[in-house]
Computed example of a mutant assay.
Amino acid sequence: MRELYLDYAATHPMTPDALSAYLHAAQEAGNAASVHRAGQRARERLEEGRAAFADAIGAHPLTVIANAGGTEGDNHVLQAVMAGGGHLITTLTEHSAVLAPARALQERGVDVTFLPPDRHGRVTPEQVQAAMRADTRLVSVHHANNEIGTVQDVAEIARVARAGGALMHTDAVQSLGVLPVNVVAWDVDFASFSAHKWGGPKGVGFLYVRRGLDLAPLTLGGGQEKGVRPGTHNVAGVYAAGLSAHVAAQAQADTYAHLTRVHDAFLAGLAAVPDLSFNHASDGSPKVVNVTAHGADGEALLMNLDMSGVYASAGSACSAGTMQASHVLMALGLSEADARASLRFSFGRATTEEDATYAAGVFARAVQFSRA
């Protein structure tokens, strides 16, 4: 049976460059915090990875904290910045790594404003401006949405936040390697990244922290990462993540063009399927297509696709297996039934236009079976 992986928004398989870098570093002895020669070699490898990643996002290496990924980075920023209370602004379409800590903060007395999106998943700088208050401490708005690909104007939103005296955080986990990323041009204070989204190792990520800002640690017990993120360094992971980020950033324009062709081929293959509607932003990330098959059973759709060897998703990978209606699609105004009948297809550099056409045909048959 032919197998076709179309869930790159959930995770990207490790690239040969990343795997080679990881194996090279993992075979070396030494803790990066040790002062002996083996430890210093590990420290050099760690800093090579950090510098390569910093270059990929237009930042200085000293502004990059190595961590375990986007979920940790999102939680770290929200919990550390809002520890003293105040007002937080975010959106209803954020990843659960932002929404969950925001709601936990709300339960502890923090005032949180959840901005509603338009039908395409966008929130505007004007909405943020209207929500700003004297005690607003943080604005957290993602760059590219993981379910519908909507790209927010984080630079303009950051300008509004800064003018109001607040800090700006963006979850940019879905961006690097697909969209142009420059945290300095965006003028954000914090940005979260996860290596496995661009083909680096799982369980490794980075948090950009604007130079001059102090961020309290979430955990205590060591001086690693300037005391902000203590614990023994994952040297091989950081090295592989940084080098693969640099490769992905260098290829971004070509990747974007390739994904656009794949995206368009997939949509063309669905043109004859009746009673479909599309939830992804037409001018968003070409990595993602989100489609509602009205009248179909979403779980049956996924099962039929899986049995045919096509692997897609009902939404965020963090909620996979639960078949809950997507909070992102519900925020767009979809009914629960339509949200449950919606699937996300996400493409990678290895996906071809022929793959996309084939997958569209398989999906068309799955829709027919699921409606029956």
Score class of each variant (00 low, 15 high):
Val178Glu: 01
Leu179Gln: 09
Leu179Thr: 03
Val181Asp: 02
Val181Pro: 01
Val183Ile: 15
Val184Ala: 14
Val184Phe: 02
Val184Cys: 08
Ala185Tyr: 03
Trp186Gly: 05
Trp186Leu: 10
Asp187Trp: 04
Asp187Gly: 10
Asp187Ser: 14
Asp187Thr: 05
Val188Met: 07
Val188Gln: 13
Val188Pro: 00
Phe190Trp: 00
Ala191Lys: 11
Ala191Val: 10
Ala191Arg: 09
Ala191Trp: 00
Ser192Cys: 12
Ser192Asn: 14
Ser192Ala: 15
Phe193Ile: 13
Phe193Glu: 10
Phe193Gly: 02
Phe193Val: 08
Phe193Thr: 02
Ser194Asp: 11
Ala195Thr: 15
Ala195Tyr: 09
His196Gly: 00
Trp198Arg: 11
Trp198Val: 00
Trp198Gln: 06
Trp198His: 13
Gly199Tyr: 08
Gly199Leu: 14
Gly200Cys: 12
Lys202His: 11
Lys202Pro: 07
Lys202Arg: 14
Lys202Leu: 12
Lys202Glu: 14
Gly203Cys: 13
Val204Tyr: 12
Val204Gln: 04
Gly205Trp: 13
Gly205Ser: 09
Gly205Ala: 07
Gly205Met: 04
Gly205Asp: 06
Gly205Phe: 14
Phe206Asn: 03
Phe206Ala: 03
Phe206Gly: 01
Leu207Thr: 06
Leu207Ile: 04
Leu207Arg: 08
Tyr208Cys: 05
Tyr208Arg: 02
Tyr208Lys: 07
Val209Ser: 03
Val209Gly: 03
Arg210Thr: 02
Arg210Tyr: 05
Arg210Trp: 03
Arg211Lys: 15
Gly212Met: 13
Gly212Trp: 08
Leu213Trp: 03
Asp214Phe: 00
Leu215Trp: 04
Leu215Tyr: 05
Leu215Gly: 00
Leu215Ile: 01
Leu215Met: 01
Leu215Ala: 01
Leu215Asp: 07
Ala216Gln: 11
Ala216Gly: 07
Pro217Thr: 02
Pro217Ala: 02
Thr219Gln: 12
Thr219Ser: 13
Thr219Ile: 11
Leu220His: 15
Leu220Met: 08
Leu220Lys: 07
Leu220Phe: 15
Gly221Cys: 03
Gly221Val: 08
Gly221Asn: 06
Gly221Pro: 11
Gly222Met: 12
